[in-house]
């Protein structure tokens, strides 16, 4: 790949990801409406598509207020962390055989590292707001994300054992014989649950929990700083969906009548819709239920999954 092509890939990935995140705002509202017997935004533009534009303009022109009691530097810094960490994670995702920003041989670990960096946005945002609801949200978010990170990593290790590499491109190549969803069904399930918790989406949106904590860790945020959290969440959905596709559903692989990128986008889209469907149909668990579920069920299950996978790999 020449330098020009390389920059083209970076620009293209950035452009597509940011636009997808913005488009997801529209998609989520339409899809939620669809499942709740409503229409959703349908006024501005065809199918209400311009609501994205209107939303963005609104966010940009809203008063960007920093509370006088907040820790100003950290308050401004926190929303940048979430966007930066998620965008960094996208560098290792192979969209097609040669379309990826960085072909790291520790790709999977890099993804885990960046997702663990994402915790800081919640913790710092909640702490810097100097608001008790924000602090509660931040504390919940921190404990939730730390505990779910543990077995998110462990559930991925099943895939690593099967493919023998951390490199995502090689993991996809290793799935030519068969997607990892079949041998790693439990791992897939655990990764999906942990991914939902990691992006703090409904039903695990306990750091936000608007019915109990106003808006959780971003109660005090307004304008584009809130917009960054918002965009970060949608990019997180895209990231987890594309990770699921890469690790368990064969990434860009698919019958030859469509180009690999299209296959990747299609599969990712299915999982994005699954995320939205989950939001439409699941009630939010209580905080202690969430932790119990994580540590007492999913954590032993992921260890067991890893053990069985390793044993079978060793025996075969």
């Amino acid at each position: 790949m020449s330098t020009g092509q390389y920059w083209l890939v970076i620009g293209g990935v950035l452009f597509v990801i940011l636009n997808t995140a913005a488009g997801l705002i529209w998609l989520e509202r339409r899809a939620l409406a669809l499942w709740q017997d409503r229409y959703g935004p349908n006024r501005a533009g065809p199918f209400g598509l311009f609501i994205v534009l209107a939303d963005t303009i609104k966010l940009f022109f809203k008063e960007d207020w920093i509370p006088p009691f907040a820790d100003k530097i950290v308050f401004v810094f926190a929303p940048a962390v979430v966007v930066a960490s998620v965008l960094m994670s996208f560098t290792i995702i192979p969209f097609a055989p040669n379309v990826m920003v960085a072909d790291l041989n520790i790709g999977l670990l890099f993804f885990l590292a960046m997702s663990s960096m994402g915790v800081y946005s919640i913790v710092l945002g909640g702490w810097a707001s100097n608001n008790k609801y924000a602090l509660l949200g931040a504390m919940r978010g921190a404990s939730q994300m730390i505990s779910y990170e543990v077995f998110m990593g462990l559930s991925l290790m099943g895939v690593v054992v099967l493919s023998g590499t951390f490199n995502l491109r090689e993991i996809v190549e290793a799935q030519r014989g068969g997607w990892y969803i079949l041998p790693q069904l439990i791992g897939f399930f655990i990764f999906l649950v942990a991914g939902i918790a990691e992006t703090h989406r409904l039903p695990f949106d306990i750091p936000e929990a608007e019915s109990e904590l106003v808006a959780g860790f971003h109660s005090e945020y307004s304008g584009m700083k809130f917009g960054m959290f918002f965009i970060g969440e949608y990019m997180g959905i895209t990231l987890i969906s594309s990770m699921v596709v890469t690790l368990y559903f064969g990434g860009w692989l698919g019958p030859a009548f469509l180009p690999p990128v299209i296959w990747f986008v299609l599969k990712t889209f299915v999982f994005i819709m699954l995320f939205i469907l989950l939001r439409a149909s699941m009630p939010r668990p209580r905080y202690d239920q969430l932790m119990e579920y994580g540590w007492k069920i999913l954590f032993p299950l992921s260890l067991l999954n890893l053990m069985v996978t390793a044993a079978i790999k060793l025996l075969l």
């Binding site: 669809l34 499942w35 709740q36 017997d37 469907l277 989950l278 439409a280 149909s281 699941m282």
Partner: peptide, 10 residues
């Protein structure tokens, strides 16, 4: 089941 039912609302 609840996910499926919500999906059917489409």
């Amino acid at each position: 089941r609840s996910m499926w039912l919500v999906f059917l609302h489409m």
